[in-house]
């Protein structure tokens, strides 16, 4: 680059404004296929992503936000933009949930990332009430395959929308909390939040 252009300003503020404008223009034109934002919560910074159908992904820091966005680009659409507005409702409901002012999430979901039996398990998760738990084998029975206990574990581990679909309410038969997409500590934190 010529030294003539060496002292150009950084333009960060202008670029931030232009990116907001692009997100709004893309939504208006129907080409905002995947909108995302992050939210700060007591269990860490969560990535939220939505299609025009609904919430498609919630990712914990340990799952890798970049990896989650790359997966969405590959499996849903590469038209991915930081566009907080589409996620305003779920962000507000998460804030209420962590503030103990909400027990049930009421946002449209897009569960296209989960297929077959995993999808059956997800459909059942919403029926486990706030503040209660079920064992993996109870969930297997409820999802129609009593012997698929390990598959229930896999379905919970790959839940595309943890917290909102409460796989944290699925625990071991001996009552210990077991593994979790967001890590064992996050699972305990959610269970004790709901027990309070």
């Amino acid at each position: 680059m010529s030294d003539l252009f060496a002292g150009l300003p950084d333009d960060s503020a202008t670029l931030a404004r232009l990116r907001d404008r692009l997100a709004a223009d893309a939504a208006a034109d129907g080409v905002l296929d995947v909108a995302y934002r992050t939210v700060e919560t007591p269990v860490g910074t969560l990535l939220l992503a939505a299609t025009d159908r609904g919430l498609v992904r919630v990712a914990y820091p340990g799952q890798g936000h970049d990896a989650a966005l790359a997966q969405l680009a590959e499996l849903v659409s590469p038209r991915v933009l930081h566009a907080p507005r589409r996620l305003d409702a779920v962000a507000r409901q998460l804030d209420e949930y962590f503030g103990r002012r909400r027990r049930v999430f009421d946002v449209p979901l897009d569960l296209r990332l989960a297929k077959g039996f995993r999808r059956e398990v997800l459909d059942h998760l919403a029926d486990i009430p706030y503040g209660t738990t079920e064992s993996y084998s109870q969930v297997a029975t409820a999802a129609g395959s009593p012997r698929a206990v390990r598959a229930v574990g896999t379905a919970c581990a790959t839940n595309p929308v943890p917290v909102v679909l409460p796989c944290h309410r699925v625990v071991r038969a001996d009552g210990s909390s077991g593994q979790y997409a967001g890590g064992a500590a996050a699972k305990l934190a959610l269970l004790s939040l709901e027990a309070a």
């Binding site: 150009l8 232009l18 692009l22 790359a70 969405l72 590959e74 933009l81």
Partner: peptide
């Protein structure tokens, strides 16, 4: 199966260049 860069990364990486 080939990894695809989310468009947001394209904006982050080249937005300043395109503005100039």
């Amino acid at each position: 199966g080939v990894s695809v860069q989310p468009f947001d990364e394209v904006v982050a990486r080249y937005g300043r260049m395109v503005l100039r």
